[in-house]
């Protein structure tokens, strides 16, 4: 379990890193960005990833921040997940994102793993995927042609694949603040505390005149990418909250899941069942928090 040989670079700035990526691409050298290494290092050790070069972003302190930008909280890609977990700003103004951070792995992993790394890695079981969908998070990506901003819906492509070109770097995620009065919930089922989830759900909603509105339901862990579930949202939108309705929404969400993953931890049917239960439970909790 030792990696195959690779060249190693640790650029001092984003510009330098992008230039390096571009140069290596031109030379037909396969390069990979190294952030916290919590996903990439095991892949290197198992030789499932074998890039010719690693570009380590560890010197990019400029990408370590959690900033209040009014409507939005901007988080630098190299911010550790434990910093996100500990952030007072997130706790107060975006508790769903804060809680999602807390649910990732164990504290040791959150200490080293970065926020940007999680988004870029696009593991379908990553909590941030559901958070991105439910909250409408945007990604700021820098490449040879400058900067672009991608919406969550367009960012996730499939298993371990996000809309980041091989010469680009994810530099920031932009998380909208949670409007006061919003009810939210984030729940998942993992075999053990800290494991990647078999399935999970994130919900935000508001109550207007006793009826649900602005309902967002996102699920993750069940198939290639996190997804919003319009079928569940529509059932709730404008309706008065009730357990039976939550159950129906859960069923609708489960039915909307395409090709659920089956592995040693659970069958596809079982994962669908989890979605059904978790969505219903999230809705109930979100309503409770909104009320």
């Amino acid at each position: 379990m030792k990696p195959a040989p690779f060249d190693y670079y640790a650029p001092d700035s984003v510009e330098e890193a992008v230039a390096l990526l571009e140069r290596l691409e031109g030379e037909d050298v396969e390069a990979k960005i190294l952030a916290g290494g919590q996903s990439l290092m095991p892949m290197l050790n198992l030789r499932v990833a074998r890039p010719d070069a690693l570009i380590d972003l560890r010197k990019l302190d400029t990408l370590k921040y959690i900033r209040d930008e009014g409507e939005v909280i901007a988080i630098g890609a190299m911010t550790s997940k434990s910093d996100a977990e500990d952030s007072g700003l997130l706790k107060q103004q975006q508790p769903l994102f804060q809680h999602a951070s807390y649910l990732i792995g164990h504290r040791q992993i959150r200490n080293r793993g970065t926020v940007g790394g999680s988004f870029a890695h696009a593991d379908p079981a990553a909590e941030y995927g559901a958070a991105a969908m439910a909250l409408g998070i945007e990604m700021k990506i820098v490449g040879p042609d400058g900067e672009r901003v991608v919406a969550a819906e367009d960012f996730y492509i499939t298993f371990l694949t996000a809309d980041i070109d091989s010469t680009e770097i994810l530099t920031e995620v932009r998380v909208p603040k949670m409007a006061p009065g919003t009810g939210w919930s984030f729940q998942e089922m993992a075999r053990r505390d800290g494991d990647l989830a078999l399935a999970g759900a994130a919900v935000t909603l508001r109550l207007e005149g006793g009826n649900c509105s602005e309902v967002r339901v996102a699920v993750f862990g069940v198939n290639g990418s996190p997804a919003r579930i319009a079928e569940a949202e529509q059932l709730l939108e404008g309706s008065s909250p009730a357990d039976e309705l939550f159950r129906q929404a859960g069923k609708a969400a489960a039915a909307a899941v395409d090709e659920p993953i089956a592995d040693v931890h659970g069958s596809g049917d079982y994962r669908r069942q989890l979605i059904s239960v978790l969505v219903a439970r999230c809705l109930a909790e979100a309503v409770e928090r909104a009320a």
Binding site: R191, R192, D193, G194, D195, L196, D263, V264, H265
Partner: peptide
């Protein structure tokens, strides 16, 4: 074998 990593062979932890 489908189990070759600790993410698949689940040892209980202090939480379990």
């Amino acid at each position: 074998p489908l189990v070759s990593l600790f993410s698949d062979y689940l040892l209980p932890t202090i939480h379990e």
